[in-house]
Design a protein around this nucleic acid. Structure first.
Length: 684
DNA sequence: GTACTCTGCGCC
DNA sequence: AAACGGCGCAGAGTAC
């Protein structure tokens, strides 16, 4: 079957990157400059506004050709919102294919010019034309866009044609998504099409509260330090001059120097090493730090972003990127629904969750920051803690969410065959306490074998008496599964402990608590290195590595593949002995927009494997939700959010769906536990 | 101005 | 015997 590559050039007053393709295409000012069509048959048409609908478009549509674009969401949005007025029939999502999605799937750079360069394509993006189109989008001093003369339009058309040629060659080089991944991409499009309803009056009231409450504090901060609160480096230097030698201005550091813990509670004893430092703070530094703590959160920027990207239908679309990470998780875009702060507001325990929510919302909806401070708490903190409430279910619908409890630890332990530990987790035992008891044998280990009636109270007592030790156990279980060593553990979780202690914790995890896990690291590393070196198929612990073209592929138990681009054999000295040279491999992946060479190692391969499995469990459950008529609108790595019609059975149904494992997960003996809640708004 | 890098922040 | 988790966005700083 032939296919068609369409590409639009457009311009408008709306900021495309800020608003996203959907809101941009819906904006009144957005106009199409031209449309270039290249077909796999060799046919080529360039269309300008006013021309009749090209016969190629209608024929391709009618004959069921695929429409292929790089970031098809943009072409889909423009076609739907603007081209109708020129008589173009819309193209159903099932007839679109996205080369950018295939790039994401293969972990290639996603910018067209980058990927063309990396793959050594003959066709390249026309960078001069790109700059011209950018200039055409920039208003002059009077706020008008440049005139479109026939000469300029012709040049735009040339640029556009070069883009379609490049996209065509790119597609010919990288091919289609596998059928399974195509289904995932279609689900991604469906979720982005649905979008998320935003409570815009609330967003605006929150914005007003933030603006009015922060302005005096920002002024005061400038008065104290001479700098804006956002000028981290300069503020840090100023503090050093004042004798306060903070290593950085991170939230936790600031809290420690103020002698408080991160939740704002004053520390009771010497748990916090920074407490002594706090004694020496001069009042100006102390006040500046307190202001930083009050209004330093950047999450409130989500409010402005919501305002920019909300569509006329009251919903934000295009929040999720298909396969945004190596192992295939979706990535959050625009206002980033994946990192909403969890609330920090502490209420009296007698106040129920729903009551707390309505009290907060009522206060925020006054838009009056002083009122919020009078009845709830610090205004900006209240807003930050309530950002999730901006996402709200449609009238007559509700939000139901389910998350896989402790899934990462369960998966890594299942892979390693540590079934005693997974059985503990499945039985509801607190494995963080279990780990703590391995680190400190003198602690009272709850009697797991005796059942929840017995160990339940023991767990509660333990949490009260040994909260810090349980915290260390938790960090160990969650952090040490992927080869983190003593120094890193100390730096990340235990700066107030000595290295010897941290090495002991690491050793306890590797030798006593989960001795099967290190074996997985070494086996995966050996298998992957062998695959890169000899080109054969090498399997370990249910994952199968083999070179395909320039990629090392890793076949997961679900049958899906993860890809490592440009995998190359290298020889490497071991960190403990420069003379011990061994076979290893490296690959390339994009980090913050740059292609970086990465040395593979067992812990990381294991982590990728675990995340890959989690992702497959998630998509399995999301497909089931769709089949059961539970519309999925968001997923956050181990959490699924649906927006069904309100009803008494939604929670049970979602829980059943998520707990119903695919065959391969049953075979791997991965225990799955799901916690669900429902509410009219998003929350944690 | 524009592109890029770095740090910080928040989540999983 | 054995190390580096992932992501996007905002803002500042730097180089051109």
């Amino acid at each position: 079957m032939p296919y068609l590559v369409p590409d639009y050039e457009t311009r408008g007053l709306c900021d495309l990157t800020a608003a996203g393709a959907d809101a941009y295409a819906e904006d009144f000012s957005t106009e199409v400059l031209c449309l270039d069509l290249i077909a796999s048959t060799g046919e080529h048409v360039i269309w300008y506004p006013g021309d009749p609908v090209p016969e190629l478009w209608t024929r391709a549509l009618a004959d069921g050709w695929m429409f292929i674009a790089h970031n098809a969401r943009f072409e889909r949005a423009i076609t739907r919102c603007i081209m109708g007025q020129y008589g173009f029939p819309d193209v159903p999502v099932t007839q679109w294919h996205d080369t950018m999605a295939r790039c994401a799937n293969l972990v290639l750079p996603m910018k067209l010019e980058k990927v063309a360069e990396v793959l050594g394509l003959n066709q390249r993006k026309d960078m001069e034309g790109s700059r011209l189109v950018k200039a055409l989008r920039t208003p002059n001093r009077r706020g008008n866009l440049p005139d479109l003369t026939p000469t300029i339009l012709h040049r735009v058309g040339q640029y556009c044609t070069q883009d379609t040629r490049t996209q065509l060659e790119l597609h010919q080089r990288i091919g289609w998504l596998d059928p399974g991944e195509r289904k995932v991409w279609l689900l991604n499009q469906k979720m982005n099409d649905r979008g998320v309803k935003l409570d815009m009056p609330l967003v605006r009231n929150m914005q007003r509260i933030v603006d009015e409450a922060s302005a005096p504090l920002e002024d005061r901060f400038r008065e104290l330090t001479g700098f804006n609160i956002t000028q981290g480096q300069k503020v840090k230097s100023w503090m050093h001059e004042q004798g306060a030698h903070l290593p950085d201005l991170q939230k936790e550091t600031v809290a420690k120097w103020l002698g408080k813990d991160v939740d704002g509670e004053v520390g009771e004893d010497d748990l916090f090493a920074g407490k002594d430092d706090a004694q020496g703070l001069i009042p100006e530094v102390r006040e500046a730090l307190e202001i930083k703590q009050l209004i330093g959160s950047s999450s409130i920027k989500k409010l402005a972003r919501m305002e920019q990207c909300v569509s006329p239908d009251g919903r934000a679309h295009g929040l999720l990127m298909y396969h945004g990470t190596g192992p295939g998780r979706q990535a959050g875009r625009l206002f980033q629904p994946h990192n909403f702060p969890r609330g920090t507001l502490v209420f009296d325990k007698s106040i129920k969750l729903a009551q707390k929510q309505s009290m907060i919302l009522e206060a925020l909806n006054t838009g009056d920051w002083e009122y919020v401070e009078a009845v709830i708490g610090p205004a900006v903190e209240t807003v930050v803690s309530s950002l999730r409430y901006c996402m709200v279910a449609e009238q007559g619908h509700e939000y139901v969410a389910g998350d896989f409890a402790g899934i990462q630890a369960r998966v890594v332990l299942s892979i390693a065959g540590e079934y005693e530990k997974t059985a503990l987790m499945a039985a509801g035992a607190d494995v963080y306490i279990d780990m703590a008891c391995d680190i400190w044998p003198e602690l009272p280990r709850p009697n797991w074998a005796a059942g929840p009636e017995v160990f339940g109270p023991q767990v509660e007592a333990f949490k009260k008496a040994f909260a810090e030790q349980r915290g260390t156990g938790k960090n160990s279980v969650l952090g040490l599964g992927f080869q983190m060593g003593g120094p890193k553990f100390q730096w990340k979780y235990a700066t107030d402990r000595d290295l010897e202690f941290c090495l002991r914790v690491v050793n306890t995890y590797r030798k006593e608590w989960a001795p099967g896990v290190p074996k997985v690291w070494y086996a995966l590393q050996d298998a992957a290195v062998a695959a890169v070196w000899d080109g054969g198929v090498h399997e370990a612990y249910g994952i199968e590595y083999v070179m395909e073209d320039r990629w090392l592929s890793a076949r997961l138990p679900s049958g899906r593949k993860m890809w490592y681009f440009d995998a190359k054999p290298i020889r490497k000295a071991m960190p403990w002995d420069p003379d011990d040279i061994r076979r290893a491999f490296q690959y390339r992946a994009t980090k913050t927009g740059q292609l970086k060479t990465i040395d593979a190692f067992g812990g990381q391969l294991t982590e990728n494997y675990v995340m890959g499995i989690e992702r497959d469990l998630m998509t399995h459950a999301m497909f089931r939700c769709e089949r059961e008529n539970l519309p999925v609108i968001l997923d956050v790595h181990d959490e699924i959010l649906i927006e069904p019609k309100s009803g008494p059975d939604n929670r049970t149904l979602l829980q059943q769906i998520m707990e119903d494992r695919p065959r391969w997960a049953v075979d791997m003996r991965i225990p799955v536990g799901v916690e669900v809640w429902s509410n009219d708004r998003y929350r944690k």
